[in-house]
Design a protein around this nucleic acid. Structure first.
Lengths: 141, 141
DNA sequence: ATAGCAAATGAGAAGGTTTATCATTTACTT
DNA sequence: AAGTAAATGATAAACCTTCTCATTTGCTAT
């Protein structure tokens, strides 16, 4: 069943729908250009600017999540519930990590800064399975 | 007193020394081009590439810290002890935040991922004092 | 001291990601 | 079904970072 998606204050264009659909399909955290590649299979004439514009707009309105994790490119996530991420220092891929959300540390942080604390994100870094086994292969020689 | 700085496997060039000195002077977490501006006051003919190259090299050898926090630019920090950061969502400035380092969560994370966990970083987001009071000014009208 | 050499620099080009511009198209209102 | 503002596609521009290479510089071994 396809549920109607809430896109506040924007028109429901084909492009927007398909961008959101494609992003929702994957569990990875694709970059804008990866989303562009996915969407282009269904809408070959879509412009890269349209993808950027809509990812940005949807992130602003809270429909999706923009991850400003390490690496050069921003990544996007259709799952908006708060969860943490782990990034491979070798290949740059980003995965979710299961870890109870520590909502109480916002409070602790508030007591130690002049900022008005809004949120927090924990990013782990490590080496993913693929890169780990690839490294083993090459070191055995 | 000026202490001799350890720069393993690299020549002690004037440029490197001054880049490190200038970075050590500030408590902020400047971007490469901000470091470039600071250094250029003392070495007007230094190239931007040299600044990037050396910040990268020093980060690799652990002399300084490269922060891959949110926003488009990477930031650098002369303090290499593990500590957390808070970033202003309005102006992008980054400050240290006092918070006991939760080294135990690396272990918890390890039990919930196929990655080999190396490290973690917590980034808070919020609104800094300046932006907060600036917003108050404009809303009172 | 100084000659030799590899490493580092400076200047510029090039690469990659993201944003801006603008004529044309499209979704929505009446 | 017509009108209107928003969105699109194509392209250029902006921006950050990395690369290239001739020249300079720091270091080593005379």
């Amino acid at each position: 069943m396809s549920q109607t998606v809430e896109l506040p204050n924007m028109r429901l264009t084909t492009q927007r729908q398909i961008i959101l659909e494609e992003l929702s399909k994957v569990k990875s955290h694709p970059t804008a250009s990866e989303v562009y590649d996915m969407v282009r299979k269904r809408l070959p004439r879509i412009g890269l600017g349209t993808v950027y514009r809509n990812l940005e707009l949807m992130a602003e309105s809270g429909v999706i999540l923009k991850l400003e994790v390490g690496g050069t490119q921003k990544r996007f996530d259709a799952a908006t519930d708060l969860h943490y991420h782990i990034r491979c220092v070798d290949c740059g891929r980003v995965d979710d990590i299961e870890l109870p959300v520590q909502q109480e540390i916002n409070k602790i942080a508030s007591e130690n800064t002049s900022y008005q604390v809004l949120n927090h994100h924990i990013e782990f870094s490590g080496i993913c399975e693929q890169c780990s086994s690839a490294a083993e292969q090459t070191s055995v020689n």
